[in-house]
Design a protein around this nucleic acid. Structure first.
Length: 156
DNA sequence: GCCAACGTTGGC
DNA sequence: GCCAACGTTGGC
């Protein structure tokens, strides 16, 4: 039996909203609130338990990759879509046919330093990253070589 | 805080 | 089905 190839991802969060330190404290967290279909489809259909994830702080000064996480467990419906009190409530979703899905994200480590976006942009090996072309996609694939390169840049 | 990019909504 | 208006994201 051959193992499936390891996949790599990047997820974004504003540090003031939910940071790598928050994830370290919680251990793991359901990645709620994604309301973009492409990002949702990646979580529902492509992510596998054990996949490695770069944790990116967006809208920061500077923005950048701050930590490493991993995917845990199977995709499940995002419960916030059913909660009228949640800002992520979706009146068009139902328990029978959920519209939004998530995976659990588990803390692995905080990087020795946050690798800032301008530095990522300057690195030739990273020139094809989805991050630069699809800046608003909050869950996105990352190449294995890109992933390793960024860890090196962080001094990890 | 500003604004460009871009995804979504809704009128027609 | 087109596209203008609008809201949100995220870099700076």
């Amino acid at each position: 039996v051959t193992k499936p190839p390891r996949q790599h991802w990047l997820v974004k969060s504003e540090a003031g909203d939910y940071s790598i330190d928050d994830l370290a404290r919680d251990g793991s967290t359901p990645w709620t609130g994604v309301r973009n279909h492409e990002a949702k489809n990646l979580m529902r259909d492509r992510m596998r338990s054990g996949d490695r994830v770069l944790f990116y702080h967006s809208n920061g000064s500077p923005s950048g990759v701050a930590g490493v996480a991993r995917v845990r467990a199977r995709p499940s419906p995002d419960p916030t879509q059913f909660d009228p009190a949640s800002p992520y409530f979706d009146p068009g979703a139902s328990q029978e046919s959920p519209r939004w899905w998530l995976v659990e994200i588990e803390f692995v480590r905080k990087l020795p330093r946050t690798v800032p976006l301008p530095e990522l942009r300057q690195e030739p090996e990273l020139s094809e990253m989805t991050l630069f072309r699809r800046s608003r996609l909050s869950v996105q694939p990352v190449g294995a070589a890109e992933f390793e390169r960024i860890l090196k840049m962080a001094g990890a």
